[in-house]
């Protein structure tokens, strides 16, 4: 990761799948598990993270020339905490019910390692455009992970998806509570992680198999 690191497009694409913050890097797990009992809070959370990540990345990238090495973590934390407070207030003002449902997990974005690691790895070293692309890529990757877990949990747990009933033959009266409760979060996360690894392994083997005869 030298001065001229990956380009904006590379950053954007990398954030979504190859370096997915949840499945690959196992960062930011607390909210990932806590807000994924249903789609709506998961979507709201993804939006809040996108907002904070873009703002923090842009600001840190703008002042990257002024950063003192031993004070940089302090500056990152200050920036992130401020934008999280703003996001929290915005939610409370315009999406009050969601703000109540998410509770402490919005302020907990401050200690979400995804954002501080993006400040450290990308935006404190590269230009604004790259930083924005990186923020969007990583935030989309994070949203992808949140929404995949929330989809499984809401459909299995409540029989709905985005509050629309999808389970056939149950007349809306369906409930597998464990999936909505905390054990369901751990189990679904573990299984999806296993699935992710399995798909990756198969793809890697496929590439190897394709290149082997030619070599």
């Amino acid at each position: 990761m030298a001065m001229n690191g990956p380009t904006a497009t590379e950053r954007f694409v990398n954030g979504i799948l190859p370096e997915n913050p949840v499945y690959r890097q196992l960062l930011g797990l607390c909210p990932t598990l806590a807000v994924t009992a249903a789609m709506k809070p998961a979507l709201t959370m993804a939006g809040a993270v996108l907002f904070v990540l873009v703002c923090a990345n842009v600001l840190v990238s703008l002042i990257r020339g002024l950063l003192k090495p031993h004070l940089r973590i302090l500056v990152f934390t200050l920036t992130i905490a401020t934008f999280v407070t703003i996001a929290d207030r915005l939610l409370a003002a315009y999406l009050y019910s969601m703000s109540k449902a998410l509770g402490p997990y919005v302020p907990l974005i401050i200690v979400n390692c995804i954002i501080i690691s993006r400040c450290e790895i990308c935006s404190s070293k590269q230009g604004v455009v790259t930083a924005i692309a990186d923020a969007f890529g990583v935030a989309f990757g994070y949203a992808l992970a949140l929404l995949s877990i929330a989809t499984v949990r809401e459909i299995l747990g409540r029989g709905t998806w985005l509050d629309i009933p999808v389970m056939p033959l149950t007349q809306g009266d369906y409930g597998w509570s464990v999936m909505i409760l905390s054990p369901g979060a751990f189990l679904v996360m573990g299984l999806l992680l296993g699935l992710w690894n399995w798909v990756e392994k198969r793809r890697a083997r496929g590439r190897l198999g394709a290149s082997a005869p030619g070599a």
């Binding site: 990761m1 890097q25 690691s117 450290e120």
Partner: peptide, 19 residues
Amino acid sequence: AVEEPRQPAAEGVALSEPP
């Protein structure tokens, strides 16, 4: 490595430099 498999440079790059 389990916690942060992809970011070896995340910490302690220059924390110990005297001000």
